[in-house]
Simulated assay, not measured.
Amino acid sequence: MKSDNIIEEKTFNLALRIIKLYKYLVQEKKEYIISKQIMRSGTSIGANVAEALEAQSKKDFIAKMSIALKEANETKYWLRLLIASEYIEDRSGKSLKDETIEVIKILTAILKSSRKHEINV
Rank of each mutant, 00 (worst) to 15 (best):
L25C: 12
S44A: 01
L81N: 10
N13L: 13
L16P: 07
M65N: 07
L16R: 12
L107M: 09
K64H: 11
I83K: 01
S57N: 09
R91F: 13
I67P: 00
L14Q: 08
E51V: 00
L21I: 09
I88R: 05
E118I: 09
E28Q: 15
I67H: 08
A55Q: 14
K2L: 03
K30L: 01
T108Q: 12
E51D: 02
I7G: 02
I104C: 01
G46Q: 04
R115G: 07
S57K: 10
I101R: 08
I7C: 03
I18M: 06
K70L: 05
V26T: 15
K59V: 13
A52V: 05
L69T: 05
N48P: 02
L111W: 05
M1Q: 04
W78R: 04
T75F: 02
T100G: 04
Y22K: 06
E51L: 06
H117K: 15
V49R: 06
S114C: 12
S113L: 12
E31V: 07
K30P: 06
V49P: 00
I34R: 03
K59F: 07
Y24L: 05
K58F: 03
V103N: 11
A109W: 06
K23W: 05
F12Y: 14
R80D: 11
E99N: 09
I106N: 04
E71C: 03
L111H: 14
L21G: 06
E86V: 08
Q56M: 13
K10P: 00
K94S: 14
T43F: 03
E54H: 09
N5E: 13
V121M: 05
G93V: 09
R80C: 12
I83T: 02
S57Y: 10
E89R: 10
M39H: 15
Q56K: 15
E89M: 11
K76R: 11
K76F: 06
K64E: 08
A50M: 08
I62N: 09
I67R: 00
I45C: 01
I7Y: 07
L81K: 14
V103T: 13
Q37D: 10
Y87F: 15
K64D: 07
A15Y: 02
I18T: 04
S57H: 12
K58Q: 12
I38P: 07
I33M: 09
R40E: 01
Y22D: 00
E9S: 12
K64A: 11
F61C: 02
K23G: 03
N120P: 06
S66R: 08
I83L: 05
I19V: 03
T75E: 10
Q27H: 15
A84N: 13
A63H: 15
K58A: 14
E86T: 08
K58M: 12
I33A: 13
E102F: 11
E28S: 13
G42Y: 08
W78G: 09
R17L: 14
I18D: 03
G46L: 00
